[in-house]
Structure formats: C-alpha cells, structure tokens
Computed example of a mutant assay.
Amino acid sequence: MRRRVLAPLKGGLQGFEGVSARELRVLDVACGTGRTLKFMGATFPKASLYGVDLSGAYLRKANQLLSRIPGELPQLIQANAEALPYQDNYFHGITSVFLFHELPPLARQKVIEEAYRVLQPGGVFVICDSIQAIDCPELKEMMENFAVMFHEPYYRNYITDDLSDRLSQVGFEGISTEQHFVSKYWIAHKKHTLAGDTVK
C-alpha cells in the first residue's frame, strides 16, 4: 500500500519544472525501517531523500536496508515530527505513511503544521493511513474493535478525524483523497509563490 504514495508524489514534483532531478528534496516523515524511502529511491534515483523518525532502532534498521542499495544514501535523522529539524520551505515533497492513527489529535495537527512549514510553495504532501469510518460506515465497529485488540489508543479518534479540514486549516489547498482497499491517501499542495517570488 505504501507504494501508492509514489504516483501523487511524482505528480506533485512535476510542478517544479525549473528544478533539476538532482535538486529535488523529498522527506519521509516517520520513515520507520526505510521501506518507503527504498521505493522512493527506485522512483526518484537522482533526488535527495531524507527520513525522520523518533525511533533510533527503526533508523538503524533503515540504514541497514538502504545501505544495500547502490547510490547516495538518504539522510536519516532521529527527531520528533512535531518539531522537524529543517528550515522553512526546504522540501519539494513530503510523505507520511501510517503515522497519523498513532498520534493524539493535537499531535496530528502539529505534524501537519510542521509539514507545511518545511514544504516549499508549490510542494506536495502525501499522507497514507488507514481508512476511516466515513469511508466504510459498515466497518466502523470493526475499526473500533481494532483499537482495542491491537492497543491503539488514538485509533478510535483517528477514524472520525477530518484530516482534510486539518490540512486546510494550515493553508494546504487542492486537497484530494483516494481509497485503496483498507488504506486512505490525502494529497495536499502548498500554495504556489506569488508573482515575483522564486522557488529553488
């Protein structure tokens, strides 16, 4: 399912016509053991890839996985996604896969705010996570039971949380969603620069 972030990411990056493939910077938030970054490396072999995760153990596994692949290694940093250690307007694209259901509501909002801050104008933010109750009301009871069975304390709140509204609140636009089996995807764009501004 995580591979499905690649198509909307690629589509969003095509908006940077004046930026060479080598100048593109893409961040995977909560990169875990590096599987999404591995797929990105195959799709964007010249881009500079970055990963951030709170778990040092996951990052060590990610480094082991990614070091087996020829080419430049993604830059991995241990950090909280609520306080990304990057300058404003730095990345052309950002992804996050199966993070948001793990977070309490205020943390979800903060991560979205941080993604907006570090994303360049015209950039794309792609989120992949579980489907929500609004997508399959007939599965709501199963989703609620999932939270109990798998000790997911924030999942019940997540399945009714309007992430599109959260994205819109911080300034993202052109927000769309897709659903594939039991996964859901949000594709959001940061407003392009005003006339006279430049994006590098």
Results as ranks from 00 to 15, higher is better:
84 L>G: 02
34 G>L: 06
192 H>Q: 11
91 F>G: 12
198 T>K: 12
62 A>W: 08
187 I>D: 04
148 V>P: 04
172 F>C: 01
184 K>R: 14
178 E>P: 01
130 S>M: 13
1 M>P: 11
49 L>W: 06
9 L>V: 08
154 Y>K: 03
48 S>T: 09
9 L>S: 04
187 I>A: 02
143 M>W: 06
163 L>C: 03
146 F>G: 05
19 V>H: 02
200 K>E: 11
104 P>V: 07
55 S>D: 07
180 H>A: 12
119 L>Y: 07
23 E>A: 13
142 M>P: 10
69 I>V: 14
25 R>K: 15
85 P>F: 11
170 V>Q: 05
94 I>D: 01
59 L>T: 02
110 K>A: 04
31 C>H: 09
70 P>C: 05
150 F>H: 11
137 P>W: 01
106 L>P: 01
24 L>K: 13
57 A>G: 06
193 T>F: 10
68 R>M: 13
63 N>I: 10
85 P>V: 10
69 I>E: 14
144 E>I: 13
154 Y>W: 08
96 S>R: 00
16 F>K: 05
82 E>L: 12
133 A>W: 05
138 E>C: 08
43 T>N: 11
95 T>W: 00
52 V>Q: 07
15 G>L: 03
74 P>V: 12
78 Q>P: 03
162 D>F: 03
131 I>C: 12
77 I>A: 11
148 V>A: 15
81 A>S: 07
193 T>A: 10
173 E>S: 05
37 L>A: 02
100 F>K: 01
177 T>W: 00
127 I>G: 03
33 T>R: 15
44 F>W: 08
116 Y>I: 01
161 D>W: 12
159 I>K: 02
111 V>C: 04
